[in-house]
Simulated assay, not measured.
Amino acid sequence: MSSPHINAPIQARMYAKMQHKVIWVVVVVASAGLLAPALFFIAAKKRVVSMAVPAIYAVLIYGSAIVGSVLGNPKNWVGGVLAITMIVAAVHAAILDMDWKPGR
């Protein structure tokens, strides 16, 4: 009998210190969410989140900006989409290591 824990992937910690978490959240907010896909790509490489997460953020952020510039932005919907995505990305970045326990 083999244990399912023997071949289980090791989940790395996303942030080494609390200072790193603060810096990443500030960077996501200061860049208006434009650097959120990069943060979540790093998290996906560390296997903290799945690879679909940075792809979804990239499609939402860059796709809405491109579609808004092609179709026009008469009611300023692009700014709303980017603001909501930035807030969601900042909260998501802040809670990435919430379930991490030392010694795991």
Rank of each mutant, 00 (worst) to 15 (best):
Met1Thr: 12
Met1Gln: 07
Met1Trp: 09
Ser3Ile: 13
Ser3Val: 11
Ser3Thr: 14
Pro4Val: 09
His5Glu: 07
His5Asp: 09
Ala8Met: 08
Pro9Trp: 00
Ile10Leu: 04
Ile10Asn: 03
Gln11Ser: 02
Ala12Asp: 12
Ala12Thr: 08
Arg13Asn: 06
Met14Gly: 13
Ala16Arg: 11
Lys17Gly: 09
His20Ser: 13
Lys21Trp: 09
Lys21Thr: 11
Trp24Lys: 10
Trp24Pro: 03
Trp24Glu: 06
Val25Phe: 07
Val27Gly: 03
Val28Ser: 01
Val28Phe: 03
Val29Ile: 14
Val29Arg: 00
Ala30Cys: 08
Gly33Gln: 00
Leu34Ala: 15
Leu34Trp: 11
Leu35Arg: 07
Leu35Phe: 11
Pro37Val: 14
Ala38Gly: 09
Phe40Glu: 02
Ile42Trp: 06
Ala43Gln: 04
Ala43Val: 08
Ala43Trp: 10
Ala44Gly: 05
Ala44Asp: 06
Lys45Tyr: 07
Lys45Met: 09
Arg47Val: 08
Val49Gly: 08
Val49Pro: 15
Ser50Glu: 05
Met51Phe: 12
Met51Gly: 05
Ala52Tyr: 07
Tyr57Asn: 07
Ala58Arg: 02
Val59Trp: 01
Leu60Trp: 15
Tyr62Gly: 09
Tyr62Thr: 11
Tyr62Cys: 05
Ile66Leu: 11
Ile66His: 01
Gly68His: 00
Gly68Ile: 00
Ser69Pro: 04
Leu71Phe: 14
Leu71Cys: 10
Gly72Met: 01
Asn73Val: 03
Asn73His: 06
Pro74Trp: 07
Lys75Tyr: 14
Lys75Gly: 07
Asn76Glu: 12
Trp77Ser: 02
Gly79Asn: 06
Gly80Ala: 11
Leu82Val: 05
Leu82Ile: 07
Ala83Asn: 09
Ile84Gln: 04
Thr85Phe: 07
Thr85Val: 10
Met86Thr: 15
Ile87His: 00
Val88Met: 08
Ala89Ser: 13
Ala89Tyr: 03
Val91Met: 12
Ala93His: 03
Ala93Tyr: 02
Ile95Val: 12
Met98Leu: 13
Asp99Arg: 15
Asp99Tyr: 12
Trp100Asp: 07
Trp100Thr: 12
Trp100Ala: 10
Gly103Met: 10
Arg104Trp: 06
Arg104Ile: 06
